[in-house]
């Protein structure tokens, strides 16, 4: 009988180091388009003060004499009712929308995953309590609950973030709980217990990392939904308010002008459309890839 000793053991293959890169390369074309679009939107948001042609128009500047100018070389997307450059406001609006999207996804993701993984691992009455609370939140129509909360709180970007997060986390809790329950039966969880690892450490170090994949897919799919919901709340006057640049708010302010000055409402509308689309195709691509 032979035993392969240190000399005979195969050496670490360099190709194994490229797993992370292959993650991106293996995505289908549409998902790549989504990732690229999203990267452009993020860059535009980050660099808004540098690339906006009229940075002060992202805020409270007014130029009454230049109100409602159609798109031209000086104002690519035209100007709004008070003469602000719509392109500049769309760029600044990307900051608000992405901030809301990221904040909502992080808050609801963290809350949902933590509750879900605890419920899934613990089982029994702990799971029952957490899941019934989750069900109660899911029983309300999400937009109505968000609206009700936004009405009670002062209209602001923070309000939008809170109102959406409250209706968003239960989905992640439910998803994570079902995944974590199956991860909890896997061998490495047993072996961690056999090595004397206490339950909290097992939950967060062994069960949680192995339960994340479907949640990450869901998070990227939901980015678009959050942006749409945030735009809807702002459109209804419950979110961001003047002079903040926010796409939903811009659509609301421009809607009465649609027949005469279409650019005021169309440009932020298209921005919402493209961002939601980018999140969706990226999420679908991730899902397809991870399902393989």
């Amino acid at each position: 009988m032979t035993i392969s000793g240190p000399a005979g053991a195969p050496t670490l293959q360099p190709r194994l180091r490229r797993t992370a890169l292959r993650g991106l390369a293996g995505m289908d074309r549409l998902a790549t388009v989504g990732a690229v679009l999203l990267a452009i939107i993020v860059l535009a948001a980050l660099l808004a003060p540098l690339i906006a042609p009229y940075p002060e128009d992202g805020g409270s500047a007014t130029h009454p004499l230049e109100a409602l100018l159609p798109p031209s070389g000086a104002h690519w997307f035209g100007t709004d009712q008070v003469g602000r450059d719509v392109l500049s406001r769309v760029l600044y609006g990307a900051r608000t929308s992405l901030l809301i999207a990221v904040a909502v996804l992080v808050i609801s993701g963290v809350v949902g995953v933590v509750l879900g993984v605890v419920a899934g691992y613990a089982g029994g009455w702990v799971r029952d309590v957490i899941m019934r609370i989750t069900d109660i939140f899911l029983a309300f129509p999400a937009l109505l609950l968000s609206l009700a909360l936004a009405v009670v709180l002062q209209p602001s970007v923070t309000t939008v973030i809170v109102a959406i997060s409250v209706t968003w986390w239960p989905w992640y809790a439910r998803l994570t709980a079902s995944v974590a329950a199956s991860v909890a039966t896997r061998g490495f969880v047993d072996s961690a217990r056999c090595l004397g690892v206490p339950a909290p450490v097992i939950v967060f170090r062994h069960v949680l990392p192995n339960s994340l994949t479907p949640v990450l897919v869901q998070l990227s799919l939901d980015g678009g939904g959050v942006i749409l919901t945030a735009a809807a709340l702002s459109y209804l006057g419950l979110g961001a308010h003047e002079p903040t640049s926010e796409w939903g708010l811009m659509v609301q302010q421009g809607q009465s002008l649609f027949t005469t000055d279409w650019w005021v409402v169309t440009c932020p509308g298209v921005a919402i459309l493209i961002t939601a689309f980018a999140f969706n195709v990226l999420g679908e691509g991730l899902r397809a890839r991870l399902a393989r």
Binding site: G187, F188, R193, C194, L195, G196, P198, P209, N210
Partner: peptide, 24 residues
């Protein structure tokens, strides 16, 4: 005490070796 002896006094080697290791 139970947590302490698990692993340091008596360790378990399981049936399916790869499943017994956290893949992450």
């Amino acid at each position: 005490d139970l947590l302490r002896i698990r692993g340091s006094r008596a360790a378990l080697v399981m049936q399916s070796p790869q499943a017994a290791l956290n893949p992450t």
